[in-house]
Write a protein that binds this DNA or RNA. Structure first.
Lengths: 150, 150
DNA sequence: GTATAAAGTTAAGCTAACTTAACTAAAAAG
DNA sequence: CTTTTTAGTTAAGTTAGCTTAACTTTATAC
């Protein structure tokens, strides 16, 4: 495998801080909106991956189709999600974020970003450039990896 | 405020990828261990911040003391947490991870790290060094920020 | 064309996370 | 020393997420 203990150490240290922070803040944000974690996670999923069918929800969250249907139903009722028939397969449904749902997610991200802005304020311009480049590389590689068959 | 649109863009792009990924994977991991998200979050909190009292749990998760007590009780019963009397204040309790709890968290992190190892495999050595340095800066600043009064 | 499989829904019932309210016990204030 | 505040627990009841089972509707296989 990859031999680079320093890299591993740096990555893990950052993940420790960042994961704790982001888990907690999403949790509190979801709560403040009145949505449950599972409901909120579905919106996040839609935001990240785009429109999908009911079965994808059920698979990705590892719940039964029945559970997915019920969760989605609540989100439709609260106006976050649009559920329409798939024109290519009339059994299937197409799930999409509504404007309201998109707005909610956006707001959540804004709050998350604020923390990073605080961090940013403590950096020199040179550090910002370095970090910016580094994160761009990571984002690119992460997206490549995600795009692949697995 | 900080004027650095490129930095902001890079950070946000990375957060998009990373937050989605880590939320989902923690969720699935917690589920696979048989713990609920709230229970698991308490273990994470203890891991990150160290021992604390019941009231800290209740405050940080924004639930009533009653709810905190009940959640902690389940974790004690499943052997993840130790709950003992605070020697300085006999009303208060001290919550600590047990070895079993620590092991569980560690295992969760290992799974999370695997993704980053995959990423790492796609980088050149130069990129690894650059990213490593960048993340170290971020970790340091993040910890400084956290240590402060707020 | 009929049989089977797939996508999703609905209903009934279980469990766990919450809440409020009433309580115990110890610390701090007066 | 009494009063009040603080830390935590217990009990009862509500709600939401989940499951299984039975069902409808559309697509696919033979």
């Amino acid at each position: 495998m990859t031999k680079s203990p320093q890299f591993t150490r740096s990555i893990r240290s950052w993940m420790d801080v960042f994961m704790h922070r982001s888990m907690r803040s999403w949790h509190l944000f979801a709560k403040s909106t009145g949505l449950s974690i599972p409901q909120f996670s579905i919106l996040m999923q839609l935001h990240h991956k785009g429109a999908c069918g009911m079965s994808e929800i059920s698979e990705r969250f590892e719940v039964t189709p029945a559970a997915a249907s019920q969760l989605v139903d609540k989100l439709v009722q609260s106006g976050m999600l649009q559920r329409e028939e798939d024109p290519h397969d009339r059994r299937a449904k197409l799930l999409n974020l509504t404007d309201k749902g998109r707005e909610l997610i956006k707001q959540g991200f804004e709050e998350r970003y604020r923390w990073m802005d605080q961090l940013s304020g403590r950096l020199t311009e040179a550090e910002r450039v370095q970090i910016s480049e580094a994160l761009d590389i990571l984002s690119r590689v992460a997206r490549d990896l995600e795009a692949e068959p697995v």
